[in-house]
């Protein structure tokens, strides 16, 4: 599974980091960091993160 975040859209709401903390996190500067190739076991959480993103910036490929 490949995760892509459109950083031009991302506004650091951090809702993804609540839905899938193993994959997305907001760093100490308040900006998004994420694992672009999470394990397949994370899919349900990554999909939830993509669903709850207020600006719909998260794309899941594969």
């Amino acid at each position: 599974m490949k995760v892509i975040v459109d950083l031009a859209l991302c506004q650091d709401h951090g809702q993804c980091a609540i839905a899938a903390p193993e994959v997305f996190r907001i760093n100490d500067e308040g900006h998004l960091e994420f694992d672009g190739t999470p394990e397949e076991a994370m899919r349900e959480y990554v999909e939830e993160a993509a669903d709850v993103c207020p600006v719909q910036a998260i794309l899941i490929e594969g």
């Binding site: 709401h13 951090g14 980091a17 609540i18 907001i26």
Partner: peptide
């Protein structure tokens, strides 16, 4: 408030 704080709230 930071997203980290929001997580606690949820």
């Amino acid at each position: 408030l930071s997203p980290a704080r929001q997580r606690e709230l949820r």
